[in-house]
Design a protein around this nucleic acid. Structure first.
Length: 442
RNA sequence: UCCCCAGUAGCUCAGUCGGCAGAGCAGGUGGCUGUUAACCACCGGGUCCGCGGUUCGAGUCCGUGCUGGGGAGCCA
């Protein structure tokens, strides 16, 4: 028996089709049943009258419960009264298997309850829209780099040491020694870029920080491109072009999902066009000080306290991005607060040739990147300054011993990007099964 | 690690000054021929997060613990 997918139902207008799916919801009166049927590709309304069905079938269908697996046979008709424009005049509905006391009702639920039932929550319209957009973003990322001459060179997930030596890592037993789950594939991409010129890795990343905020997950996906013979300016050009292509792709493919399922205002997304504002840390700092001086709210004033040499915190970034209608690129942070591999600016040794991209509408940092230190002596000094052992980084230093060239790259957080484009409050909805400090299941 | 908020029916929540435990939804029964989170009537449903304290009396006040949420730091 051939099955029709709801997403392709328009092609079967006027014909009798068989759908295989689940009962999403049902409304009934004495002589009419309205079944909302979903099959994973979409939702369609099926209608059945007592007159057409006869009392036996009519009663059997009336007894179906939410999320029962069903096989429905009916004629596809166009009807403006039906959500979606099409509906199915049902001839027969067979129950494939029952669903008793389905926990997620069509009414509202709390976040914790829904996260406990994440395996079922995935069936809802809103989660469908989000995860389909996530899929588009992931495909968009791969297509962009594949079409621009990059080679996919995956970095390992099990690593022997702290890549950056800063954040907290998950450790695991590894045949008598300790291995750590990767917090970044970047160091390995530097080796890959010296071999292939332009490379990227794309995979899960792990951070054991006790961060309980709407922007943090302990397991998240990151894409990390790296390019040989590219400097900071080239890096920013790449970032700009790449982000614009992602936004455009999502707008083209998901305008309805964004507007209808997610109630996302897409006007701010349409403004994401080149060029993005580029500003130095110094200029950003001046703006923050101006904002701080102009504010009358004592709490905001205190949160914005800063002086040269300090890294920006979330409150600083949030206030800064409010002044712009597109992503901004802040470059040249103080050398001391950045990771050891960042290139020290030869013209201004107090700053690093790095860049952070801050998304608009309060979504904050979605990209961190920059030019890498290609000078052996400066890199050795940086390792010492950060009190990192030299031995585990010998292979990394080799890259500076055998044909070192300027190179740059960045890391984009997929979940923060999905949250931004979908206009979500929390990143936990942007990944099928979120891992946070307090959640390891389902 | 620190700061703030919350925990009452399967779910979302209300509960006044400390005085009989409540509503909507979900579930069950009945009604309704175009419903849009359908609607109407009736019914069943409680370890008020745990422990201790104050009180004639605690969902309510105090202490403490646990769990969840938000934020800081850190970061994508």
């Amino acid at each position: 028996m051939s099955t029709t997918r709801i997403s392709e139902i328009a092609g079967s207008l006027g014909q009798e089709v068989t759908l295989r799916g689940w009962l999403y919801n049902m409304r009934s009166s004495k002589k009419l049943h309205f079944l909302q049927i979903r099959d994973g590709s979409g939702i369609i309304q099926g209608i059945l009258s007592l007159q057409d069905a006869g009392p036996e079938l009519f009663a059997a269908i009336g007894a179906l419960t939410q999320e029962s697996a069903i096989e429905a046979v009916g004629k596809v008709v166009s009807d403006p009264r039906s959500p979606g424009g099409f509906e199915l005049h049902l001839k027969d509905v067979r129950r494939v298997s029952p669903s008793v006391d389905y926990p997620i009702s069509p009414k509202e639920h709390g976040d914790a309850f829904l996260m406990d039932h994440r395996h079922l929550w995935l069936r809802s319209k809103r989660q469908h829209a989000i995860l389909k957009i996530r899929h588009t973003i992931i495909k968009g990322i791969r297509d962009y780099f594949d079409e621009h001459g990059f080679v996919l060179v995956d970095s390992p997930i099990l690593t022997p040491n702290a890549c950056e030596g800063t954040t907290t890592l998950f450790g695991t037993e590894y045949f008598g020694q300790t291995a750590y789950l990767s917090q970044s594939g970047q160091l390995y991409q530097e080796a890959a870029a010296m071999a292939f010129g332009k490379t990227y890795c794309f995979g899960p990343t792990f951070r054991a920080e006790k961060s309980k905020t709407r922007r943090h997950l302990t397991e998240f996906w990151m894409v990390e491109p790296e390019v040989a013979y590219m400097d900071l300016e080239g890096d920013m050009d790449l970032i700009e072009d790449f982000l614009c292509s992602l936004v455009e792709r999502v707008l083209n493919k998901h305008e309805r999902d964004l507007k209808e399922s997610l109630e996302r205002d897409i006007e701010p997304l349409k403004r994401v066009q080149k060029p993005f504002p580029r500003m130095s840390y110094d200029d950003a700092l001046k703006m923050i000080v101006q904002i701080r001086d102009a504010t009358t709210d004592a709490e905001t004033k205190a949160a914005l306290a800063i002086e040269w040499g300090m890294d920006f915190g979330s409150p600083h970034e949030t206030e800064l991005t409010k002044k712009f209608d597109r992503p901004i690129m802040v470059h040249g942070y103080p050398y001391e607060v950045k990771a050891f591999y960042m290139k020290r600016d030869p013209n201004n040794p107090k700053v690093a040739r790095c860049v952070d991209v801050l998304a608009p509408e309060g979504y904050g940092e979605i990209i961190g990147g920059g030019q890498r230190e290609d000078d052996l002596q400066i890199l050795e000094a940086a390792l010492a300054k950060h009190e990192l052992p030299k031995a585990p980084f010998e292979w990394f230093l080799d890259l500076r011993r055998y044909g070192s060239v300027p190179h740059a790259g960045f890391g984009l957080g997929v979940e923060r990007t999905v949250a931004w484009l979908c206009g979500l409050h929390h990143v936990r909805e942007t990944i099928p099964f979120a891992r946070t400090m307090d959640r390891l299941s389902p």
